[in-house]
């Protein structure tokens, strides 16, 4: 049982015009096995929340705290956060030229497990993960995210989620740019990870359609850098009907 606790998190980003406040006091608690959907209009700060928790250097923590099972996440380097059990599935995964998917995955698994996975079981593990996500075996020999389609990038992210077995995963608009088939396949991957590893999920999305496949326990509406309304799955239905107009005006 793990708990990610975000308390009064305030984050700014440096721009040419000076520091701009993006997160204005976010409170959120995610336990193992729970799925929290964060929904909000573009520009509300959803992605900033995701990247701040993962430790992207672009963002400056102005105040508040983030802890995982009591350990101070904000004091950790980016790799230490992953080792502590956090995972960020990125909206725009980065190309790493010349580094093959198989080399990347094995390096990451070695780092996270503390020792290199045994070659034979590892090969089987990767094969299984790829098959489950309907990925061509040749995928493993390609360079990380280089020339990947939008759908391939997202499948690659979820494959990592399944192989690296974090405690808490943040999915940043994993649904964007996916057709219905790909959305279903990717969602099934997330659900498998939930089932197999009792994963806690922070699902960031603009649209409600992914919630048909990944059922949230809690829905949080995000606007103007903080959470403006919270509720159960029915809150998503209300957003589907009314959109974000009520929250943006506030």
């Amino acid at each position: 049982m793990s708990t990610l606790e975000i308390r009064n998190l305030q984050v700014s980003v440096n721009t040419e015009a000076g520091a701009v406040d993006i997160l204005k006091g976010v409170d959120l608690t995610i336990n193992s096995g729970e799925t929290h959907a964060i929904m909000g209009p573009n520009g509300s700060g959803k992605s900033t929340l995701a990247y701040s928790i993962a430790g992207h250097p672009k963002y400056t923590i102005v105040g508040g705290s983030v802890t995982l099972d009591g350990a101070d996440v904000l004091e950790m380097t980016v790799d230490e956060r992953a080792k502590a059990g956090l995972f960020l599935a990125m909206q725009y995964p980065v190309e790493v030229p010349g580094v093959s998917v198989s080399n990347f995955l094995r390096t990451a698994a070695t780092a996270l497990r503390g020792e290199a996975p045994k070659l034979r079981t590892w090969v089987a593990e990767v094969k299984e993960a790829m098959e489950a996500l309907n990925m061509d075996p040749a995928f493993a020999t390609r360079n990380v995210n280089e020339g990947f389609s939008g759908g391939e990038k997202k499948r690659h992210e979820i494959m990592q989620l399944e192989l690296l077995r974090p405690k808490i995963a943040i999915l940043d608009e994993t649904d964007s740019g996916l057709d219905v088939d790909a959305l279903r396949i990717v969602s099934e991957g997330v659900n498998r990870a939930k089932e197999n590893n009792n994963l806690g999920v922070l699902l960031i999305t603009h649209y409600t359609r992914i919630l048909k496949y990944i059922k949230p326990d809690f829905v949080h509406v995000f606007a103007n850098g903080h959470i403006v309304e919270e509720g159960g799955p029915d809150l998503a239905d209300k957003l589907e009907a009314n959109g974000y107009a009520d929250y943006v005006r506030k």
Partner: peptide, 15 residues
């Protein structure tokens, strides 16, 4: 590229 390094490190790989 800081983004490449961030991506790799976010998977537990040291700097």
């Amino acid at each position: 590229d800081d983004e490449q390094l961030f991506y790799l490190m976010s998977r537990g790989i040291t700097l």
